[in-house]
Design a protein around this nucleic acid. Structure first.
Lengths: 194, 194
DNA sequence: AGATTACTTTACACCATGTCAAGTTGACGG
DNA sequence: CCGTCAACTTGACATGGTGTAAAGTAATCT
């Protein structure tokens, strides 16, 4: 527990999240400070740099939205296929909420090693959800022939990437439910054999 | 035709391309200048800014690799399905060569309106290839039910995005042929009915 | 009263892009 | 042989965002 004011820290995280989610151009440290009603320098009393702040925002979001609970739901599905569908719905509905931060972190990936590591860590965690769904498919003997479990996981992971969501949802203008439905059907056809 | 030395211009483009394709961290204007053996300022005698330089690199690549010829090939396929496969192979094999520039342009998209417009233009052109393949499928009556032609195009477009290639090829370490093969099969299953 | 915490304000270093102005060099025409 | 022009070089500088440093202030705890 930090000795710094906890409410200020939360205000920063919330302000940063709000700004990032609005998606109105690049969000600078000074923008976040202004939104949180503190000086730009005070940000550095709470977070050593921009990357750390962004990472803290994602962790904060995980807490607020209780990611664990969402994932637990998909783990209870009765069959591999059902589990796949539940996983896609759970993750697919979470993307919109982390999208702003995700964008910012991805943009930093090139210059900032820490940002890259953080983002890769989160994506690795997401990949485990994909692996679990694929494993459930395989246990049912439903995994398509000609695709190894690892490859199937890679494929599902790519299909569920934030970039693909961005493209279909924002560039192509698909409604969220349509994105979920088509992605579920696409994944089923791509991964399930028979 | 510019009055500036044409060979210098080509040397710049080639140097920029080489550096970008190596993918060793961010490529600065000074890096490109050094590689082309001119001063950083001389770059600005040939290109008004970084975005324009990058765009020129893509156009240069199109010329060098004769993109039109590649596309013409896929247009001659006898059936919709064959055409889809040919298109995926053609574009999928082109991605590795434009990947470096693509990355750089995508990274600029957020701050630079010109870079964004340029990239979107190129992606719109690529999308036409997807639309043509989908139209060929539909003409054969092979388009999956429950998916409009526009949606099918969007889906194929996303599946063939540079980001997905990056993820499978670089993050997951797939060989290029495997990327092509699995993408072809995935697209077939996702788009073709029956 | 004194110390500590959580800030503020001001100033500055760094780095990449892009601008500006004053050279230098080599080729070509008269 | 001289002048001119095109293609470059060198050096200085503005801008914008990140991050560092230091001194000051106001409230709170003991």
């Amino acid at each position: 527990m930090s000795r710094k004011n906890e409410s200020t820290r939360n205000r920063i995280l919330k302000s940063a999240w709000t700004l990032l989610e609005k998606g109105e151009g690049p969000v600078r440290m000074s923008d976040i400070a202004k939104a949180a009603k503190i000086s730009r320098q005070a940000l550095y009393l709470h977070f050593p740099n921009r990357a750390d702040l962004l990472i803290a925002v994602t962790r904060h979001l995980d807490e607020v939205h209780d990611v664990e609970a969402r994932l637990a739901e998909s783990r209870m599905a009765p069959s591999g296929v059902k589990r796949l569908q539940a996983w896609i719905a759970a993750w697919g509905d979470y993307i919109p909420q982390i999208h702003g931060v995700a964008r910012a972190l991805m943009a930093m990936r090139d210059h900032d090693a820490e940002a890259r590591a953080a983002w890769e860590g989160r994506m690795a965690a997401m990949r485990e959800g994909c692996a679990a769904a694929v494993a459930a498919l395989e246990a049912d003997g439903d995994l398509r022939e000609g695709l190894s479990p690892v490859e199937a996981t890679d494929l599902l992971w790519s299909l569920l990437s934030v970039r693909v969501w961005e493209q279909l949802r924002l560039d192509c203008g698909w409604p969220q439910e349509r994105y979920i439905a088509v992605t579920q059907e696409t994944a089923r056809r791509a991964l399930v054999g028979g």
